[in-house]
Design a protein around this nucleic acid. Structure first.
Length: 507
DNA sequence: TTTACAGCGTC
DNA sequence: CTCGGAA
DNA sequence: TTCCGAGGACGCTGTAAA
């Protein structure tokens, strides 16, 4: 299949907002592909390469050769080129990568170059990613969507099941949980408080569970005999980085199992260390000084029995039989909202991030973010001052979007210290308003960042503070988002860096 | 040999 | 990871 | 309800540049 055909479809998909129309366009292209190309085409249509890393990024794709006049590239050749780049390593590899890039992009027409750059940097914006492609796979193969979805979740993604889908419903149905092949993890939606979470997940009078929410990294552990694998949330294999987790799982009294949990670094007193320490340890090749401790909260398979479709209470019971308490997430089960709230407070007091309220009856819905699991985390707020704002891109082009946030700090030149940026929590109305407002306050514009007079106060919600080497205060906000602009406060009434530091002490 | 930076993954 | 818009 | 896309902070790794 010519790349041109794929790029044309991507352009058409981007041009319509109708999800059904997008699905139809994608399905038609899958049907037009040769059978051996279908999986690759599904990757490309999902906006992803088959290769996990190519070494290509925004920077290295800035300067490109002149585009070709006529299309000639085919999808298999493009995949081969990216594969070659992904295999480059060692001295001189950057030069070789540049040469391969020039060759590939030089053979591409202008629209093909645009698409190639987008897919390489992971920014294909066509209003359709894997979920819509999953619909398209079902439509083009003539099999039920639910069957494709389920197979995709259990095999780590839709692109893995394209061939099975085209073989028919029987082949799809045969795709099950396989020990040793990670499944997409079940996700949690969120609620502002425990009572709301209970209401949404169970309802009054029903049994539900409440898990402590640990601030570490998600791990999915598969064991087949002595063979143990550890996967991250995105199904990356990090087995070699976590030998202590491997040893713990290998010691469990079973031979075949799949566990879901969280791993984190602990202080000597057992309290969790800051997330950054866990992240550092789990991102490091080889054993570091920090030890990570696994805590499991679900069991998907045990010695030949798939537990995915069993109600949560049954999976929890099996988990309790298999895993000793010291490696299980703290869990409360009952019907009393007040007791649940007390458990949540205790979890916070123990240094955890919050809780996850869980349906007692729901199956393990791999890859889904539904009402069966609902996380609740406390929210902090500060009144900060906007120091600058960035021009938006994509659907925010033409608006001033990402704002730079400062706290009052008399010791700093200018009187403010920057704590981070945010683009979250802005409605289109707010975007319109702030575009006008910061236009009035602007004192400089380098084409990307507009510096403004520090006069506008904004109420910012955030999840916590982290140590920063980038920002002069040594602190940065985690998950900052706009709550509202405050026109009732002047910049002199905004929060100070000392107030911010006091938040750190509370935590 | 050391430093800077881009790419990539975690949340 | 969070949030708002849209189907 | 589900999906997408707007982009945040950090830290590790490998290569190029100093």
């Amino acid at each position: 299949m010519l790349l041109r055909d794929l790029v044309d479809v991507s352009t058409a998909v981007a041009a319509t907002r109708s999800r059904k129309e997008k699905t139809r366009l994608l399905a038609d292209l899958l049907l037009a592909a040769e059978p051996e190309e279908r999986s690759l085409v599904a990757h490309f249509l999902s906006g992803r390469l088959r290769q996990r890393r190519t070494g290509l990024g925004w920077r290295s794709l800035q300067a490109l050769p002149s585009p070709a006049a006529a299309p000639s590239l085919d999808v298999t050749g493009v995949d081969a080129a990216f594969e070659a780049m992904s295999e480059l390593a060692g001295a001189g590899s950057q030069g070789a990568r540049t040469a391969l890039t020039a060759e590939l992009f030089g053979a591409a027409t202008a629209p093909e170059q645009d698409w190639l750059r987008s897919v390489a940097v992971g920014e294909v914006r066509q209003g359709a990613l894997e979920a819509v492609v999953t619909d398209a796979i079902a439509l083009s193969a003539g099999v039920p969507l639910a069957a494709v979805r389920r197979a995709a979740m259990l095999s780590g993604g839709a692109t893995h099941v394209v061939d099975a889908a085209f073989q028919g419903p029987e082949a799809l149905a045969a795709v099950g949980l396989t020990v040793g092949r990670p499944v997409l993890p079940m996700l949690a939606s969120s609620a502002p408080d425990v009572a709301t979470a209970i209401d949404r997940t169970a309802g009054l009078g029903k049994v539900f569970g409440v898990d402590a929410k640990l601030d570490g990294i998600r791990i999915q552990v598969h064991r087949n005999g002595d063979d143990v694998q550890v996967a991250t949330r995105s199904l990356d294999d990090i087995t070699h980085r976590l030998p202590e987790v491997v040893a713990i799982v290998r010691a469990l009294p079973a031979t075949r199992l799949v566990l879901d949990g969280e791993a984190l670094a602990l202080a000597d007193d057992g309290r969790p260390r800051p997330f950054q320490e866990t992240a550092s340890r789990t991102a490091t090749d080889g054993e570091g000084g920090t030890v990570v401790t696994p805590y499991f909260f679900d069991l998907l398979h045990l010695d030949g029995a798939d537990l995915l479709d069993r109600p949560a209470t049954e999976r929890w019971a099996e988990l309790e039989r298999l895993v000793p308490e010291q490696h299980r997430v703290r869990r409360w089960v009952g019907t009393d909202p007040a007791a649940a709230q007390a458990f949540a407070s205790a979890a916070l007091a123990a240094g955890h991030e919050g809780v996850v309220v869980k349906s007692a009856t729901a199956p393990y819905d791999a890859g889904r973010r539904g009402a069966a699991w609902i996380k609740v985390k406390p929210v902090h707020t500060l009144d900060l001052v906007v120091l600058a704002v960035e021009h938006g891109s994509g659907r925010r082009k033409g608006w001033l979007s990402n704002i730079h946030l400062g706290a009052r700090d008399p010791s700093q030149p200018g009187g403010f210290v920057m704590l981070g940026k945010t683009f979250k929590g802005m409605t289109d109305d707010i975007l319109r308003w702030q575009t006008e407002r910061f236009g009035e306050l602007a004192v400089a514009d380098d084409g990307w960042v507009v510096t403004v007079r520090p006069e506008q106060v904004v109420e910012i919600a955030f999840d916590g503070l982290q140590r920063s080497t980038r920002y002069p205060g040594g602190l940065a906000l985690r998950f900052a988002r706009v709550v509202r602009y405050r026109d009732d406060k002047t910049a002199e009434e905004a929060d100070t860096i000392e107030t911010v530091r006091s938040h750190l002490l509370q935590h």
